[in-house]
Simulated assay, not measured.
Amino acid sequence: MKGTVVALGGGGFSMSESDGSSLIDDHILDLTGTTKPRVCFVPTASGDADGYSQRFESAFAGRAETSVLSLFCHDPWGYTDPSMLLEQDVVYVGGGSTVNLLAVWRLHGLDDLLGEAAANGTVLAGISAGMNCWFDASSTDSYGPLAPLRDGLGFVTGSACPHYLGESGRREKYLRWVASGELPGGYAVDDYAAVVFRDGEVVEAISEKTEHPVYRVMRVGDDAVEEPVAVRLLASTTSSSPETKLGVTSL
């Protein structure tokens, strides 16, 4: 897969505690190289929850040209031809049900359109289900209890586990599924952290808060092994503090 993917384990505007500001979201905009990028929010996984889309528009107002792709035809956005994704600088995918997202996307042809958009320079980003969708496989609660899913878009090789330390059971079950072979090895990303991929390879891991790690998880024999990934702590433009590194291994 050609192009850039930013996979958020958690964080971004949807987990902001106040005004929707997010250093990870700032970094996503910076990746476009434009002063006022075109950013489309795709809230399919939440069933196009209106409040979610409104929070996106509020968070990005004034610094991006925003749009919402509502495949459920919610007002005031209505239905738009999904080919509009090819005109975006960023496609930002919200959280919710990974299974439902993938099913609806395939019916509307988004699987092919998103690959084409990425190859043409569009940054693909997403949180939670919006992280899971880019990988071959993932840990998901789409069926209620956490379960392994081997049905992603495959833009990134391996499996994904968002909210790694932020939600009970995520870490233990993901390690168990990788150890048993139910899921291939992959990346486990905590809340407020993200991994940036380019052309299928890791560029870096980033975080907007301290003590939120990223791991590469591999199957070794009958066990799953966590390899910490060096995480760059993003610095606010209003602060003179230098960016620091978290973790013990390099990329």
Score class of each variant (00 low, 15 high):
Val42Trp: 01
Pro43Gln: 05
Pro43Val: 01
Thr44Ser: 13
Ser46Asn: 05
Gly47Arg: 02
Gly47Thr: 04
Gly47Leu: 09
Asp48Ala: 08
Asp48Ile: 04
Ala49Tyr: 10
Ala49Glu: 14
Ala49Trp: 08
Asp50Ala: 12
Asp50Lys: 12
Tyr52Gly: 04
Tyr52Gln: 15
Gln54Glu: 14
Arg55Leu: 09
Arg55Trp: 06
Phe56Leu: 04
Glu57Leu: 09
Ser58Met: 07
Ala61Gln: 13
Ala61Gly: 02
Gly62Trp: 09
Arg63Glu: 03
Arg63Thr: 05
Ala64Glu: 03
Glu65Met: 11
Thr66His: 03
Thr66Tyr: 07
Val68Tyr: 00
Leu69Met: 09
Leu69Pro: 04
Ser70Asp: 09
Leu71Glu: 05
Phe72Asn: 13
Cys73Asp: 13
Cys73Val: 06
His74Pro: 00
Asp75Gln: 14
Asp75Thr: 10
Pro76Ser: 03
Pro76Asp: 07
Trp77Met: 06
Trp77Ala: 06
Tyr79Pro: 01
Thr80Tyr: 01
Thr80Lys: 14
Asp81Trp: 10
Pro82Tyr: 11
Pro82His: 11
Ser83Tyr: 00
Ser83Val: 13
Met84Val: 15
Met84Leu: 13
Met84Thr: 10
Leu86Met: 11
Glu87Asn: 15
Glu87His: 13
Gln88Ser: 02
Gln88Pro: 07
Gln88Glu: 14
Gln88Ala: 07
Asp89Arg: 06
Asp89Asn: 15
Asp89Cys: 09
Val90Ile: 09
Val90Asp: 03
Val90Gly: 02
Val91Ser: 05
Val91Asp: 02
Val91Met: 08
Tyr92His: 12
Val93Phe: 12
Gly94Glu: 04
Gly94Gln: 06
Gly95Phe: 04
Gly95Lys: 00
Gly95Arg: 01
Gly95His: 02
Gly96Gln: 07
Ser97Gly: 08
Thr98Pro: 11
Thr98Val: 12
Thr98Leu: 11
Val99Tyr: 08
Asn100Ala: 13
Asn100Phe: 10
Asn100Lys: 14
Leu101Cys: 08
Leu102His: 02
Leu102Met: 12
Leu102Asn: 03
Ala103Asp: 15
Ala103Ile: 09
Val104Ala: 07
Val104Glu: 09
Arg106Ile: 03
Arg106Glu: 10
Leu107Asn: 13
His108Arg: 11
His108Ala: 14
Gly109Ile: 07
Gly109Leu: 05
Gly109Ala: 06
Asp112Val: 12
Asp112His: 12
Asp112Ser: 14
Leu113Ile: 15
Leu113Cys: 12
Gly115Asp: 03
Gly115Leu: 09
Glu116Ser: 13
Glu116Trp: 00
Ala117Pro: 11
Ala117Leu: 12
Ala117Asn: 12
Ala117Phe: 09
Ala119Val: 11
Ala119His: 09
Ala119Ser: 15
Thr122His: 06
Val123Ala: 07
Val123Gln: 02
Leu124Asn: 08
Ala125Arg: 03
Gly126Glu: 04
Ile127Lys: 00
Ile127Trp: 00
Ser128Asp: 07
Ala129Asp: 06
Ala129Met: 05
Ala129Gly: 08
Gly130Lys: 06
Asn132Leu: 04
Cys133His: 05
Trp134His: 05
Phe135Asp: 05
Phe135Trp: 10
Asp136Thr: 09
Ala137Ser: 15
Ala137Gly: 10
Ala137Ile: 03
Ser138Pro: 02
Ser138Phe: 09
Ser138Gln: 01
